[in-house]
Design a protein around this nucleic acid. Structure first.
Lengths: 299, 299
DNA sequence: TCAATAGTGTCTATTAGACAGTATACC
DNA sequence: GGTATACTGTCTAATAGACACTATTGA
């Protein structure tokens, strides 16, 4: 923090160095952001008495250009040289869903050499969570060919092998994306090798039906992160409307975790994250339910 | 998955498109990897009876060039256009510590526009954990000016503010890096804002004494990840030699978590991650301790 | 009335925290 | 013998899982 200029081995000060620095001497990769925009929607329900089931939905875009022309990809785009990666992610989100100010977090940066056939592309993936009621533009019908797909994640196979000084776990994950007129699918292999104090985790897309690039991997990664984080953070509330019932909230947990929960234990667990209101659901075909809101306030 | 070539709006097949694709039309950022290489070492102990305390150590490199000439930075370097980010991280690790095959994971990608004064640089940070006994090259004396620093992380201040529809938490983290002849320090501010269903988390380096670029932020981020992961994964064993005592293991947990643990509870918790051997420590100045190893095997 | 959900009470099993008490080397 | 650590037993508190039971609406 001294003000005396420091000279390097060529006798240059920092200012002189920066002025003469040629940024173009190394070949550089392209950088994109890819957005995993999730929401939860109600499914159709014919029985007026039953509650509608919920489904986890992911926004995808049909590619109108090579490569992977006609296949579906995550929304995203190039990061400009004058904007931060976070800003680029916000910009993409805004341009796809027309919403600002929602939950977003960086997930992982994908940098395999051959992941884009055009040129070397690094992709930084972000996850965003949207409450469906705040989606005024109902993406899915617009000219952009953006559609919400229902996502399911299923472990097809889990194989454990004992190795000399450790083990290997190989998991096959089946991913399915549903839409009234289209179904996409992929199988992703996750290999976890642990030998001695070493540990490696590799992913690869084994088979892909209609999902462009390595985006099936990104989706699997995002779902795993979402599943993890819902257990120990309040992340799920970003998927809820301002007022919701505890049954709704439980359904959201269930659809993300892919398993049923017991109501009593669930209510205990989330009790101090919500505050009750005096309002109730109406016309439910059964006992009405108290409405709650997220307890962001109160400390 | 059909074999019929698809044509885009210009009538081109995918192959034709790729051949004519000009990768150079957009300005591209540079991409580097930065390595957070941690290990745990014993501190000196004058009393022959007392156990040596442990300290968390981080490898840093003194910059021999502008910018930040003379300051200390994380080891790292540019990702070549022909290698994956993971490969670049492995290469950097190998060149700094001369070890292969240790635990490594990607942490976060830093992409603010002004983070490097030379040009636009994106940095992908990786954390690696090394057992000190496998470090044959005792980095710290070599010409490269690489040194292990003891790291301490301390929350200086935590301020909670109630906002209209949410809250803001502002934390000041004090980071200190110790070495017999040099002490570095920095203060990092983490701001967490939650309003309605929005949530944002921003970091910034408030003050930095001898730590180059935004690397203080990266270190803070890595320590937080390490603290989190040690609670629910095996990650700590990557810092242990092949044989260790349970007290050693507990000390490693304590130095990372920054708090004391109760021996009885700790032993219960890690019981099924270790297996005992028939060997004991010797010349301890007190009751000898049984040696354990990591239970990678046995399922 | 009854189908279906809303919501609560309570028993049990498991886990974490606290702490006392015993064991055992080496100087 | 005394110091310092190694290791175990047990009581308590907190939390998660299971499940039965009561409450309440609209058709």
């Amino acid at each position: 923090m001294s003000n005396k200029p420091i000279h390097d081995r060529n006798g240059m000060t920092e200012q002189q160095f920066l002025q003469s620095y040629d940024a173009a001497i190394y070949a550089r990769p392209s950088l994109t952001v890819d957005m995993l925009i999730f929401t939860v929607m109600d499914k159709e329900q014919e029985n007026y008495r039953k509650l509608p089931e919920k489904s986890l939905q992911l926004l995808m875009i049909r590619r109108g250009e090579h490569p992977f022309l006609g296949q579906w990809a995550l929304p995203g785009g190039f990061v400009s040289i004058h904007e931060s990666i976070d800003d680029a992610a916000h910009r993409e989100l805004k341009s796809e869903t027309n919403i600002d100010n929602i939950y977003m977090e960086q997930l992982y940066t994908w940098g395999d050499v051959e992941r884009d056939p055009r040129t070397r592309v690094i992709s930084c993936s972000y996850m965003a969570l949207v409450d469906r009621t705040s989606l005024n533009v109902q993406a899915g019908d617009d000219a952009d060919d953006a559609k919400w797909f229902e996502v399911t994640y299923r472990v097809l196979q889990e194989k454990r092998t004992r190795l000399a000084e450790g083990y290997e776990i190989e998991k096959l994950i089946e991913l399915r994306l549903f839409h009234p007129v289209e179904t996409l699918s992929a199988t992703v292999k996750i290999t976890e090798t642990a030998v001695g104090r070493t540990a490696k985790r590799t992913r690869s897309v084994v088979q892909s039906e209609g999902i462009a690039f390595d985006h099936a991997q990104m989706i699997v990664y995002a779902i795993e992160r979402l599943r993890n984080k819902i257990e120990y953070t309040d992340i799920a509330f970003h998927l809820m409307p301002p007022l919701f019932t505890l049954s709704d909230l439980q359904q959201v947990y269930e659809v993300i975790l892919g398993k049923e929960l017991l109501a009593a234990a669930f209510r205990r667990k989330i009790a101090d994250m919500v505050s009750e209101t005096n309002e109730y659901t109406k016309d439910a075909g059964h006992r009405p339910s108290k409405l709650y809101r997220f307890r962001n306030f109160d400390l």
